[in-house]
Amino acid sequence: MIHSVLGGGVTALCCATALSDRGLDVEVIVPDGAPEPASRFAGGMLAPFCEGESAPELIVAEGQAAVNWWASHVSGVVRRGTLVVAPPRDASELDRFARATRQHEWVTPGDLEPDLAGRFARGLFFASEAHLDPRRALSSLKGRLESRGVSFRSGTPRGRIIDCRGLASHEELADLRGVRGEMLIVHAPDVTLTRPVRLLHPRFPCYIVPRDEGRYMIGATMVESARRGGVTARAAMELLSAAYTLHPGFAEAEVLELGAGLRPSFPDNIPAIRHAADRIHVNGMYRHGFLMAPVCAERLATELAELYADAD
């Protein structure tokens, strides 16, 4: 039976990949006029332990599989861990972060990232974490599928439908909501950071993820709103001033892009596979798309493979 995977974001591509890896017949359907997937605006941090600051243990435990999954499917997974710092007057935020998470050690940030030497007295280092460039990873997955003969088309789905359309599925999933996120991409040749750095702040936290060629992704706001449309001045101002706090070199950066997306989220902010009458939903990635989409995809693929094995 053919499997029609609906959607063009990280969830759809991971599901299509996991099904295809098990030898199942797959096609990917990206509806005409679909908004850009939220995963295009993701940070691409594979940081289950840092996410544990506010995410439940399930995300921390299962998300650990993401690093190896990505490394075995695409190139460009950088395993250099995550560094977490706070401005001196918010140093207590670091203690709170340490209490709320595990698998970290106290470090002198300048020892890991020389550009931060003298700026932050101490930081937390999560050595086992990694990051990737989301857009490259998505296009690699797509290329990999295409090279196996998986077709990408618009139009009517057929066979078994795997619905991974994110917020576009909100009519079928009544408890799905959008959590707006805003981000920037800058070119900052004056700054050298080699791993994701999170700056803690009671009101304006931010993270900076290095991309190639001196580019950095600065993210991301979390607003309980399904408003589409561009980045607000306030979000840009808050994110940029947080980046400037991390390193003054960001003041001279060239802003390459401002982007906003809507994170599809269930009330518990935990991704889910849900079986409906005519389709299987894989949705609700919240801010954990690159971390949890592979996990959900593998779970789904295993489920289906077992189902077919039993049927034989």
Binding site: G178, V223, E224, S225
Partner: peptide
């Protein structure tokens, strides 16, 4: 900040 679109 959420505006009218924060309905969910």
């Amino acid at each position: 900040r959420e505006g009218v679109a924060g309905g969910a």
